[in-house]
Design a binder for these strands. Structure first.
Lengths: 312, 312
DNA sequence: GTGAAAGCGCTAACAC
DNA sequence: GTGTTAGCGCTTTCAC
């Protein structure tokens, strides 16, 4: 100790008073760490998804002194390349490569030099951590909610696995959710009475519900594969004079704003956007770059759209 | 020219082949420019607002070789301070200080040293460029849509200026929109038949519509101050056996996803989130730091919720 | 015009 | 341990 404690303290107070902060740029040049994480997404706009993901990611990043460079490719490989280059130029420490919804897709090779976590990507050839919502358990939770209320018969699915001409195998979330639903129903000795396969948009929910009804089906419960489908279902049921939940119980997925806006308020299994963002960052920061799957629970949000089936 | 053109070309091709890119950190240390813009928002999550704003801001930023450091304060001054410090440490070139919805609020003093544009802030004591949606013209456009369809009588407002006990003067958007509506109606020699003042959430839209109806009012047209109120209004009208647009025409504001999901699809004056983001960045980059107001048009999106009034 | 050298603000390595 | 120095990769300045 060549300088006195007093002197040291005086320097520190002076620094604090002057508001001295080390220059991060200079520090980065020397150390090659920028304390900045890139968040590259295919689409941040269309859905409410992104906002919460960013929020969760940012909160966790900030706790560790990191900031987020956020960008969106719009699915355009040209933009993606430019974005990746710009981020590399700025020497981001790591990247979250996020997809708007759970589907195949993986980060470009240019990113292979740094830590990357794949958010929402089902591509299992990606050689690093992937974080995904636990869609299978979500399906189980939805079915459980119905079963626990006493439902067993005439349970229909609206949306199903999202089987359409463009996606003949459906979508990942659909397959997983339906697998969970089917399993729980099987466990209590029953099964889905019918499934209307379609794209997960309100108009198909409306059309699907009408088509079910007009084909003579009499659903006592509807598993809507997302809230937008449930919106369509509500409209159709009302048009046919059926009441939710008195005549038909409804359970759904996503827990978007819609779920709480609808009347009766919709019971829905939440897509945990915020947690997904948090988990992506903490997975990135835990130092383990090994290939693995990190799964985030999807909690059931119980509201007013489920009640025990009426005995005829 | 000491080196031959050929040598120069060979160097350039070699650089391109090796994928050489100048180190932005080193460059920044030397030049004090990072080609990075900070986007600080009070809330990016809750609303779909943020996604599109970020998208627009990013697109424009990228065109100019800039990237976006995105952060959210959650309205917490402590977080805000930390965020601002972190951004200052990283030497962002400029900052967009954005508010989730149009209201008072201004950037902290710590940012006064660099170019800032205030997005969605009504605080006119802020000494720099502000960008705001043109709510007044939006009000005019909504009223015009009704008037052009032949409406003049029994036009009610739902939501009004958002007069509540917490906000006794309402909100900026409400005051502006209603001013525009009132003016257009006055121009054609009529006026609002009544206004239901409330917070702009679906349940109030529902309650407000019912209360209007039950008080003996017979609206032929409803100006809903946002789409969520319109959702509530649709539910209430349906409950009372009134059809949109046959019995009641509806026009709304925001043009959120809801507007296209509702049946009949809702005519709504759009909040141009994407354009707001674009405009914020281009305003930031045009070099003019003077205090001024940049206004972004709100376009009418015509759908199926307006038709001429029935003659009794 | 062209080439060399200084230096941005910091930290890691190195002598003492 | 503690003080000094070299150098991160670039741009700008200044000699030539």
């Amino acid at each position: 100790m060549r300088i006195s404690e007093d002197a040291q303290r005086r320097v520190h107070t002076a620094a604090a008073e002057l508001g001295y902060r080390p220059n991060q740029t200079a520090r980065s040049l020397r150390t090659h760490v920028t304390r900045t994480i890139g968040l590259i997404s295919d689409t941040i706009a269309t859905t409410q998804f992104a906002g919460e993901v960013i929020h969760g990611a940012l909160d966790t990043a900030l706790e560790h002194g990191y900031l987020l460079l956020v960008a969106e490719t719009s699915g355009d490989p040209g933009i993606e390349k430019k974005l990746v280059d710009e981020m590399l130029d700025r020497q981001v420490d790591a990247v979250i490569y996020a997809l708007m919804y759970t589907k195949p897709g993986q980060p470009p090779d240019a990113l292979s030099s740094l830590p990357v976590v794949l958010l929402n990507g089902t591509e299992d050839c990606f050689d690093g951590p992937r974080v995904l919502p636990d869609e299978y358990s979500a399906g189980r939770a939805a079915a459980r909610a119905l079963v626990d209320a006493g439902h067993a018969e005439a349970i229909y699915s609206l949306g199903g696995r999202h089987l359409t001409s463009e996606a003949p195998n459906g979508v990942f979330a659909g397959r997983q959710r339906m697998a969970g639903v089917d399993e729980v129903l099987a466990e209590v000795g029953t099964a889905i009475a019918g499934s209307y396969e379609c794209a997960w948009e309100p108009e198909h929910g409306y059309a699907g519900t009408l088509s079910l009804l007009d084909d003579g089906h009499r659903p006592k419960a509807l598993v809507c594969l997302n809230d937008r489908l449930a919106l369509g279902a509500y409209q159709a049921l009302r048009d046919r004079g059926l009441r939710v939940p008195v005549d038909v119980s409804v359970v759904s997925f996503d827990d978007s704003d819609l779920a709480s806006w609808l009347r009766p308020a919709l019971t829905s299994v939440a897509l945990p956007h915020y947690e997904l963002g948090k988990t992506a960052v903490s997975t990135l920061l835990d130092g383990n770059r090994q290939r693995r799957l990190v799964t985030v629970p999807m909690p059931l949000r119980s509201r007013d759209s489920i009640q025990p089936p009426r005995v005829p």
